[in-house]
């Protein structure tokens, strides 16, 4: 088989192969779009804003009772309309988990999050897992 024949085979296979791959996946994509209409749920709740938007509500109708001395306004929620009152410990724990998953350097967190040693017995680990599951949202 000479070079031109090989090139010919290669080009035919490429056009045919990529064409079939695209057609199959476009077909699947259309099916999934159809499923969304048939079985799907609507948009996820993320786009909604938190109803008790504390920073915004601060200026709303002042209640008749005197308010406590104003604390510094809570952090301005960035992109994802975060619930107004995330405790710093929760934020620190989430960031530690993300860092561990991405194997990034340990962040200086406040309050500091310390990795527990992994030398517990089977029952110790079971108890720890039980505690974590009990606190799951």
């Amino acid at each position: 088989m000479d070079t031109w024949e090989k090139l010919d085979i290669g080009l035919v296979m490429t056009v045919l192969g990529m064409g079939i791959v695209f057609l199959v996946l476009i077909f699947l994509s259309s099916l999934l779009g159809f499923f969304e209409r048939l079985f799907g749920t609507r948009r996820s709740p993320a786009a909604q804003e938190p109803k008790p938007a504390a920073p915004a509500a601060a200026e709303e109708k002042p209640p008749p009772l005197p308010r406590p001395p104003s604390k510094p306004a809570p952090e301005p929620a960035p992109a994802a309309a975060a619930p107004a009152a995330l405790r710093p410990a929760v934020v620190a724990a989430v960031m530690a988990a993300v860092s561990a998953y991405l194997q990034a350097e340990a962040l200086a967190l406040e309050p500091p999050v310390k990795r527990l040693p992994d030398d517990l017995s089977f029952w110790g680990r079971a108890a720890r897992l039980d505690q974590m599951m009990a606190r799951r949202l």
């Binding site: 079985f39 799907g40 749920t41």
Partner: peptide
């Protein structure tokens, strides 16, 4: 953000 996917899907 991605939408939720139902169990049926």
């Amino acid at each position: 953000e991605l939408r939720e996917v139902s169990r049926t899907e």
